[in-house]
Design a protein around this nucleic acid. Structure first.
Lengths: 338, 338
DNA sequence: TTGTAGGCGTTATCAA
DNA sequence: TTGATAACGCCTACAA
């Protein structure tokens, strides 16, 4: 197909290329009459403006790169779906940067911005994948960027998430209300900021109730169901078993339940299990999982909204923005056995 | 930041812009000495070539658009992850086109190719989102394109999937082997080609075993757990209940199990339940779901491989390419009750 | 092996 | 309201 461009359209419509360009990008500057004339030719020829040409000139790609540890995680998938919607309706496209949690790949995708292939970054991990000078303020060294769902230790960055401390605290307080005092946690990996925050919340709740912290009841998993199972095994080996287990994601909670059931324990009569995230399958598992609901759609749409505001040149207040969590009480928790 | 380009580097390295360009894109054409000299300057300046400029010139964006009905579906997420890996290691980026099954959005994302923003399309739905002249052969009217996991009725298109007919047939034959004769199916929506194929497989298996087809045992769901539940309800209302239920995806199978259990039925002692897909949670549900395993990673990597071959100008044989499925026998199926 | 020069398709500036 | 013209950043004949 002989490439057809703005010039050909201009010739056919007997106007200048500039006018055709205006018809495409700022039709309000063109008279009704020429507008229609040009539009007709565009239609007849099935002409599509070449975005690359425009990008080169405007220095705007119209793309946003989303850097995500794992698209296979339902939490991330839910967020991404919302992002994609927000982006599309603002005329942006999403470049998918699934990084498998590898720093190298995070940088690779961040580089797309430096190469002009993307105008901004949505970040869902806890590292900043750009070279920065620590002596300078961060602002000015970074492209438009929003961090979602995971904490970065800087108040110069726009961040959107649930208040993990408060959420975990609320979850544990609920268990305490149910009469539990031996409450175990299965955390995420030690170096994950959001996991640290949830652990804090757990501690606050225990302290608030005057329950001593028992390090034997704190186990680190890696957010997989398998790790949930092995942590549950360790907990069952304890002389004084917990009556409730709070897992820092649903996946591990499901693993914990699986193992408990396999060993003949009844959830929740013998042991209560609580998750975090409220993924779709939390409600489909048996017993249905009590968990902390994260507003995935809202997280995603807020992230993309704040990024687009930046891309439009609006000033966005940096710092963390908390979205409301809710406790989803289902069937996997109950009163402590006596 | 004053935009730094190939010219600035050239000046600093005391070579011509052409040489800098060669250093970037075809270093084998440059002498070792100048190569190092230029590379050093590039490094020192932290220069990143602008991809848009190159794209305009080469008419290649380096992007591939993946058109997917729903990224939230674990099947799609698994495929996409493999695609992303294959794309990245070949130097391509993935533009995410989550369409919510809307034809309008499919076209929107397909348009990215026409706008030069993407070089090829990965399609995971059953519509061709391009205007084509039905009187002409398809080939030549379409950009580089691979269809995955869903059937398009044309042998001019490169397609990658599991053999749905054979897979469904194998699944039902397994149930027949277990002594079941009243085997119900919960299909996908009527207009989904892969669902039709699975239904065919079901019919073949029954015919092969001399079991009459009973239309009361064929219910259409919409691939949600909810629809699985309501189909299960209808099946329980039947005078002659099925002893096995084959669902065309795991999600519905999980819904079916949930409802059966709620009504006091034991799975698999009273009713066997079989799924399709083998999503991650199939193994985490209770009882663990027997299902047809789809090789998601292989589907994704094959799709991207075939597309990249096309993009490199290699000729790819059109037509369907089948990837091997396997039966994953777990705990939700058993012998027919007597 | 390197340099010169033109152009990819669009938009922005300026003048008409 | 429209048109002429010069970029945007890079690549690639072609010439040296």
């Amino acid at each position: 197909m002989a490439t057809i461009g703005i010039k050909e359209i201009a010739t056919l419509a007997k106007v200048s290329p500039a006018t055709v360009s205006r018809v495409i990008s700022s039709p309000e500057l063109v008279s009704k009459k020429t507008l229609n004339k040009v539009k007709k030719v565009i239609d007849e020829m099935g002409y599509r403006p070449n975005r690359i040409g425009a990008s080169l000139r405007t220095r705007k790609s119209g793309n946003i790169v989303a850097i995500i540890p794992d698209i296979t995680n339902p939490v991330n998938a839910g967020i991404i779906r919302a992002i994609e919607q927000g982006a599309q309706s603002a005329g942006y496209s999403i470049l998918l940067g699934d990084t498998q949690n590898l720093e190298e790949r995070e940088r690779h995708y961040a580089d797309l911005v430096l190469a002009g292939q993307a105008d901004g970054v949505l970040l869902f991990c806890s590292r900043i994948p750009f070279k920065t000078d620590p002596n300078q303020p961060l602002a000015g060294q970074l492209p438009p960027l929003v961090n979602g769902n995971e904490r970065i230790d800087s108040d110069e960055i726009v961040q959107v998430a649930v208040d993990n401390v408060a959420a975990a605290k609320a979850a544990v307080e609920y268990l305490i209300d149910q009469g539990h005092t031996r409450i175990a946690v299965v955390t995420g990996p030690d170096d994950v900021p959001s996991s640290k925050e949830r652990l804090e919340g757990y501690h606050y709740a225990l302290q608030g109730a005057g329950i001593a912290i028992d390090n034997n009841l704190q186990l680190a998993g890696d957010y997989t169901a398998e790790s949930g199972k092995s942590c549950a095994e360790k907990l069952l080996l304890l002389r004084d078993r917990p009556t409730a287990i709070f897992c820092f994601n649903d996946e591990m909670a499901i693993g914990v339940m699986k193992l408990l059931q396999r060993q003949g324990f009844n959830v929740p009569n013998d042991v209560s299990v609580m998750g975090f995230d409220d993924i779709h399958y939390a409600d489909l598992v048996t017993p249905a999982l009590t968990t902390v609901h994260q507003p995935l759609h809202e997280i995603g749409s807020t992230c993309i909204k704040l990024l687009i505001q930046q891309l439009k040149g609006q000033v966005v207040q940096p710092g963390r923005q908390f979205l409301p969590f809710t406790l989803k009480i289902r069937a996997s928790t109950g009163p402590a056995p006596r």
